[in-house]
Amino acid sequence: MFISSFMSAPAKTVTPGTLLPEAREIMVSGSFRHLPVVDGKDILLGIITDRDIRSAFPSEVMDERERGEYLQRFATLTVGKIMTAIVTKLSSKATLDDALILFEESKIGALPVVNEVNQIIGILAINDLLTAYKQLFGLGVRGSSLIVVEDDGKPRALTRLTEVLESKQVPFTRLIRTGGSGWNSNGNNLIYIRIHSYNLSGINHALADAGFQPVVPAAQ
C-alpha cells in the first residue's frame, strides 16, 4: 500500500545551474517527462517538465535569424530560471491513496518523493500508480473472476461473505462494497469480490445458501 514499492528510485535529477540543452538531452535520452531539481545536498528545490523546456525552445515557425538568436539564448538559460518551485510532493511513507488524491488535485503527471529532511529519494509517475492498482486489483493475473452480490443490509454482511469464501478455501484479492446511494435498481449497495477460482457454480450455490443474491452487473 506504500508508494515506496512502486516509485522509480533513485530519481534522475538536475540542479538549478544545469543548462537547458543538457536538461533537454537528459529527458530525451532517458524518456523522462519530469526532472526534480535539487541542490548539492539533494534537497528538493523544484521540478522541471518536458513542457517547460518545449516552451523555452525556439519555435519552428520563426524566421531563421530570429530562431538563431533564440537558440543562442536557450543555450545559456539555466533550469533555475524556468523550474516550478515545488509545492506538491510525497513523503517516503505516503500511501497509494495519498498519491491518488494528490494526482487528482494537482493535475501533475509525476510527484517527487522526499525523506524527512526534504532530500529526494525517488519519483512516482501516474503510470506507476496505475501499475500499483492493477496489481492490487489482481488484474491480468490468469485465473480470477469477479463475483457480484447484493448487500441486503442485514448485519455482518462482509463477515458472512468472507466466512463462505474462507470455509470453501477460495482465495480472493479484491473486496469492494459500494457506498453512498444505491447502485442497483433496488437501491441496495453491491459487493464485488475478485476470486481466484473457476468453480463459480459451487461458489454461487454456497453464497446463495448464506443468503446472498448474485447480481449480473450492467453498464449504465
Binding site: 488484474l139 491480468g140 490468469r142 485465473g143 480470477s144 473472476s145 457480484v148 463459480l200
Partner: peptide, 8 residues
C-alpha cells in the same frame, strides 16, 4: 474479462 474467468 473484467467479470469472467480467467481474467484474460
Amino acid at each position: 474479462p473484467t467479470f469472467s474467468f480467467p481474467g484474460t
